[in-house]
Design a binder for these strands. Structure first.
Lengths: 178, 178
DNA sequence: TGAGATAATGAGAATCGTTATCAATATGGC
DNA sequence: GCCATATTGATAACGATTCTCATTATCTCA
């Protein structure tokens, strides 16, 4: 499945409204957060990490690693694939980014700063990803888990289907699934 | 993450109660279903496919392909990996098996005959997988999707957490996650 | 029953996303 | 600036899965 990014239909949180179009504000916040996180454990900071964080925030949401690599390299051709992977893992560890693995076998990351938990709707026609939150579902999940003796630590809820654009005429869907 | 199989805590459907301990009854049903499915499209049947189907049904649920390969090969050492993959895809296509991809990167299959839709609880301690059904959650999913203009075709709901055995003392969990 | 058409197989190469290796380089504290 | 060491880049390795293609098996029909 091909998945493209589009967060247009999601309601934005107040924090997000403040966001500049290229994510510079969040990038700065993330960089300073990363900075102190690194210092706390005696790690060093690097030019590459800065570029990657800035680029990542400039890309919006649900960024696939290979896309990030391409974009970063257009800015600094010497950055290696390994470094991008390493850095994204680092960002996930310090709570700046969240990894997501949908059904197409590659890891995507979304910015985590100032955002609440949400799940995803994924269009099987055009690959559009829409985020949603639903407390009732979460509550029911916990209840079901408890009734089986489990205590939920995390969950994954993905709804696959066709979006309105794709349903009324294939017009809206530039690329159907293979 | 390491995932092991255990369906003990799940309530069984009447069909399942009838099941013999090694799944022979279902295997027979599956084989004849596969047989007619193949004939309908002018395909041929083979010794390998029979062995694979029988072995698959003998293994219960949530069977990872490499485990299936190992088991099949202990019966017939000449069966190739490719054939097992091919056959499982075939079974999925004709509705005899359902592929599942949890967060450990490998595909598992579960028998599909006479079973209704369900989701999964996965223990992050011991890897136990428990199945559950919840209509309310499904209903809410549809509602949320509709409110975003989507029509759900399929979904994935996985709850990760610690099971009761793993929570009270690590005693029950033979292997913690790496 | 056997020949011909073609589907299925086995072995291994190829793929894809990701991680490991390791020598070279950069960073930060002194 | 020097040194210890964290980070990097290039590339090999990895694990799961699929592809390739020559060989083998299965079906159909005479």
């Amino acid at each position: 499945m091909r998945i493209v990014i589009n967060m247009a239909t999601r309601r934005r949180t107040p924090q997000e409204e403040e966001r500049t179009s290229d994510g510079k504000v969040e990038a700065q916040a993330a960089l300073s957060r990363l900075g102190s996180w690194l210092e706390e454990r005696g790690l060093k900071h690097s030019r590459q990490r800065d570029v990657i964080v800035e680029t990542f925030y400039g890309m919006g949401g649900h960024v696939p690693v290979d896309g990030l690599v391409a974009r970063v390299r257009s800015l600094d051709a010497r950055v290696s694939v390994a470094t991008v992977y390493r850095t994204m893992k680092l960002l996930a560890e310090c709570g700046i980014a969240v990894p997501r693995r949908f059904d197409d076998g590659q890891t995507r990351y979304e910015p985590a700063t100032g955002r609440s938990h949400h799940d995803h709707l994924i269009c099987t026609g055009c690959g559009r990803i829409v985020e949603f939150e639903n407390e009732k579902i979460e509550e029911l999940q916990n209840r079901v888990a408890r009734s089986h003796g489990f205590e939920v630590e995390s969950h994954k809820l993905e709804l696959y289907g066709r979006c309105d654009r794709c349903r009324r005429g294939e017009a809206g869907s530039r690329e159907a699934r293979p």
